[in-house]
């Protein structure tokens, strides 16, 4: 009886409705835009039949092709570099002993998350110009690397915190030197965290618009910049198609990163 009442107690009237509303709000726009990307006609009101025509148009668009290549080059290099820096930092922060000023270092590493993106964006712009680096792919890469560091750092350090130091002690106890203990024990155990961090950094770089918009020079147009340019001109079904593609890319990477982070955690 008591248990029944107590369970009922957890059910607040209307909370389920709000939850459903929340999910509808989060998903409806994306689902609607994806559905319309397959509509053969330009019309909103009429369903002109299923068609991949808009996708064909997107793939044939040379500007989109160029932007895709730029986006991938930038995302791969920025997330690789950011993951490396974050990995080193995480090992020092989690595995090294506590030191004076550690909180300050933690804030510094996460600073790119704390500063409003628009400020990082305009700051980077005037900074690059002031120190004489001309805007282009390189400036985007640098800015993305910095912005991605905390995104790579958080899953890596979380994973590292979850690994008790007994494992490294055991490795050292069994005659492994510091490098062998990292190479054969810690690194394989951290791998899901590293992959997860890399993927998040990759997505963040691939998706970034605000910073890229400020520091991308001519010829460094990325996919989000290209989409923005298209939206500015007017809403075309092509936008639906390319949005759906990017949406899908994000979903795939995030789901993968989630699965990798979960299955190996035991």
């Amino acid at each position: 009886m008591m248990a029944g009442h107590a369970e009922k107690l957890k059910k607040f009237p209307g909370f389920l409705t709000v939850t459903i509303g929340c999910l509808v709000l989060l998903y409806a726009p994306m689902i609607v835009i994806s559905v319309y990307s397959f509509n053969a006609t330009r019309s909103i009101t009429k369903w002109g039949g299923f068609s991949l025509g808009w996708y064909a148009k997107v793939f044939a668009n040379p500007e989109i092709q160029r932007a895709t290549v730029n986006s991938l080059v930038i995302a791969v290099s920025a997330s690789t570099l950011a993951t490396l820096l974050a990995l080193l930092a995480a090992i020092a922060m989690v595995r090294g002993r506590a030191f004076r000023g550690q909180e300050g270092v933690y804030v510094l590493i996460n600073l790119p998350l704390l500063v409003p993106e628009i400020i990082s964006a305009v700051g980077s712009l005037i900074f690059f110009l002031a120190i004489g680096i001309s805007l282009g792919l390189m400036t985007v890469m640098i800015a993305h690397t910095i912005f991605c560091i905390p995104f790579a750092y958080l899953p890596i350090s979380a994973r590292l915190q979850g690994i008790e130091d007994h494992y490294e002690q055991a490795a050292r106890d069994l005659y492994a030197n510091a490098w062998q203990s990292f190479r054969y024990v810690l690194a394989p155990m951290m791998l899901p965290g590293i992959v997860s961090g890399y993927m998040l950094a990759f997505i963040i770089s691939l998706d970034d618009f605000i910073i890229t918009n400020m520091v991308a020079g001519p010829g460094a147009t990325t996919l989000p910049l290209a989409i923005y340019g298209m939206v500015r001109i007017g809403f075309t079904p092509e936008i639906n198609a390319i949005s759906t593609l990017m949406l899908l890319a994000s979903l795939v990477v995030v789901t993968l990163s989630y699965l990798i982070g979960r299955t190996k955690r035991n």
Partner: peptide, 26 residues
Amino acid sequence: NSISGKQFLQLFPAMAAISFFLIGPL
């Protein structure tokens, strides 16, 4: 404790990058 040499070396790249390319712009 003050930071150990090894820790400093490991933290240096990330800290330097963020200090230069973010604190710099700010």
